[in-house]
Amino acid sequence: MQNVTIKSSLYLLLGASAIAWVLLALIENKDLSNPVDFFGLLPKVVTIDLLAIFAFTKWGWKFRLFRGWLVPFPNLNGTWVGFIYSDWINPETGEKPPRIPVMLTVNQTFFHISCVMRTGEMESFSYAEGFQIDSDKQIKNIAYCYTSKPRLSVSDRSMPHDGTSVFRIIEKPQLKLSGRYWTERATTGEIILDYHSSELLEAIPEELSKHPIRKEPV
């Protein structure tokens, strides 16, 4: 998939350069069969190409018309909300804990992506992120490693730790992230998130924190 995208990018850039050359020649009444006129337009064509590349990497990559053939990964920017379903067994009760309201914020550009996850007791920050996209195998995942920092009020039972999350990206019929996580504390579980908004929120929405608790994934 990556090779196809690179080839598509090169073809698009060459095509755009050719169009720019022709349009500039018409505007400035240049003869492209004349080497002096042809190469004389080169600095302006390069400038146009650089501006087009800047605009694409800044804004254009988000448009769906470029998805697949030019941009292999989806736009995940925004706030995602849902629940964590931990596999941890409480030694005192012998049961799993209730599901935990959680919020994930994704800050994504064409070149970089960062993920911050928040619950009522902790914040985790990604430090290594990447997409796994293979349309032929129907694979569309995002994975990242993170450092979790619990609140000081729960430090007696929850220590800072590192972990990894892998999410399957679901776009149809609605945006959803369905994934799993594991940590260096030997805890594992599931996380199911729905797309909430394009705004990067800094606290879990009140309606989510008051959501009825269930012990099994929905």
Rank of each mutant, 00 (worst) to 15 (best):
N3P: 15
V4N: 13
I19N: 12
W21T: 13
L23N: 10
L23W: 07
L24H: 04
L26A: 13
L26V: 12
N34M: 01
P35D: 10
V36A: 14
F38Q: 05
F39L: 15
G40P: 04
K44Y: 07
T47V: 09
L50N: 10
L50I: 11
L51W: 08
F54W: 15
T57M: 13
W61M: 04
F63K: 09
F63W: 13
L65G: 08
L65P: 03
L65F: 15
G68R: 06
V71D: 00
N77P: 00
G78R: 02
W80I: 03
W80L: 03
W88Q: 07
K96Y: 06
I100D: 07
V102N: 02
L104I: 04
S114T: 14
S114M: 08
S114F: 03
M117S: 09
T119Y: 03
E121D: 14
E123P: 00
S126V: 03
S126P: 03
Y127R: 10
F131S: 05
Q132E: 12
D134C: 07
S135A: 12
S135M: 09
D136I: 14
Q138M: 11
K140C: 14
A143M: 09
Y144P: 00
C145I: 04
T147N: 15
L152W: 09
S153H: 06
V154G: 03
S155P: 01
D156H: 12
M159H: 11
R168K: 15
P173W: 05
L177Q: 02
S178W: 02
G179R: 00
R185N: 09
T187Y: 06
E190I: 06
I191V: 15
I192P: 00
L193S: 05
Y195M: 02
L200W: 05
A203S: 14
I204K: 10
E206D: 10
S209G: 04
S209W: 04
K210C: 09
K210T: 15
H211I: 10
R214C: 10
P217Y: 08
